[in-house]
C-alpha cells in the first residue's frame, strides 16, 4: 500500500482538525470529499509530509515520514499541489516547472524532457515560454499541477485541483487524473462530487475530522437511493445521505 494511516490525528490550536483517520490507499485515484472544515486539507498536508501528525501511525510509499532519511526518499517520489500554491510572477512556465524538477533531484539529463512532458500533459505547450504573471487563474492552476507531476510521482496529492478551471479544462483534467492513476496513487481533495464520479476509483467522505464513508463512487451513489437526501445528482444525494447519517 502506498498510503497506510492508522488512527491519525492532528490538532491545530484548539481545533481537532483530524480526529482519528484510518486509511489505506494503493494505486488509483482516491477522491477525498467533505464540507468546508472537514479536515481534508489537514489530512492532505500530513500525507504530503508538510504537517506532522499529533498521534497515530503513518506510512507513505513503504517509508516512515517521521524518519528524516526516509522522509527525504518519500519526498523525491511525491507530487503535491496545495490549495493556494505560490508563484513567482516573472518566471516562465518552463522556468517554474524546471525549478521543481531540479529541486526534486530528477537526473539532470532527463530534466528538459520531463519538463516538456509535464507542460504538455496539462495542455500548456503553447504557453511554455509565457511569464506566469500573464496567465489566467485556471492556467496557473495547471502550471501548479505540472510541477506536481514533473517527477512522475508514485504518490500525487492534489488539494482542490479543479478550482478555477473551466468545464473544458476540467474534463481534460479528469482524463489526466485517470491516466495518472494507472501508475500512481492519486489523492484528490475536492468539493465537486462530479469530479469524483468521473475520475475516482475510490472515494472517502470526511466530516469533522473523520472519514465517515469509504468505498467506490457507485457505493456512495447507492447510499442516497431511496432517501430524501438533498442533491441534484445521484452522487450528491449519496454524499448528503452519508453526511446526514454521520451527524445524526
Amino acid at each position: 500500500m502506498n498510503v497506510e494511516a492508522a488512527d491519525l490525528t492532528r490538532r491545530l490550536g484548539r481545533t481537532q482538525a483530524v480526529a482519528g483517520v484510518t486509511l489505506t490507499v494503493d494505486r488509483g485515484v482516491y477522491g477525498l470529499l467533505g464540507p468546508n472544515g472537514a479536515g481534508k486539507t489537514s489530512l492532505l498536508r500530513m500525507l504530503a509530509t508538510v504537517l506532522a501528525p499529533s498521534s497515530g501511525r503513518l506510512r507513505l510509499l513503504d517509508g516512515d515520514p517521521g524518519d528524516h532519511r526516509q522522509c527525504k526518499a518519500i519526498r523525491r517520489r511525491l507530487g503535491y499541489l496545495p490549495q493556494n500554491p505560490g508563484y513567482y510572477p516573472r518566471f516562465t512556465v518552463v522556468d517554474f516547472v524546471e525549478y521543481f524538477a531540479l529541486l526534486k533531484e530528477i537526473p539532470a539529463a532527463r530534466v528538459p524532457r520531463a519538463v516538456a512532458a509535464a507542460v504538455e500533459r496539462v495542455g500548456l505547450g503553447d504557453k511554455a515560454t509565457a511569464r506566469l504573471r500573464t496567465l489566467s487563474g485556471g492556467m496557473l492552476r495547471r502550471v501548479g499541477i505540472a510541477q506536481a507531476i514533473v517527477n512522475d510521482p508514485d504518490l500525487l496529492l492534489l488539494d482542490e485541483p479543479t478550482a478555477g478551471l473551466d468545464p473544458e479544462q476540467r474534463v481534460a483534467f479528469r482524463a489526466l487524473l485517470r491516466d495518472l492513476g494507472q501508475t500512481a496513487t492519486v489523492i484528490v481533495s475536492t468539493h465537486l462530487v462530479e469530479d469524483v464520479g468521473a475520475a475516482c476509483t475510490q472515494v472517502g467522505l470526511m466530516d469533522q475530522g473523520r472519514i465517515v464513508f469509504s468505498g467506490t463512487p457507485d457505493e456512495l451513489t447507492r447510499r442516497g437511493e431511496g432517501t430524501d437526501a438533498a442533491g441534484d445528482a445521484p452522487l450528491e444525494r449519496g454524499y448528503s445521505a452519508v453526511l446526514t447519517e454521520a451527524r445524526a
Partner: peptide, 11 residues
Amino acid sequence: PFGEPERVAGS
C-alpha cells in the same frame, strides 16, 4: 514565493 510544494520538493 513557492510555499509548501517547495518545502517538500527535495533536500
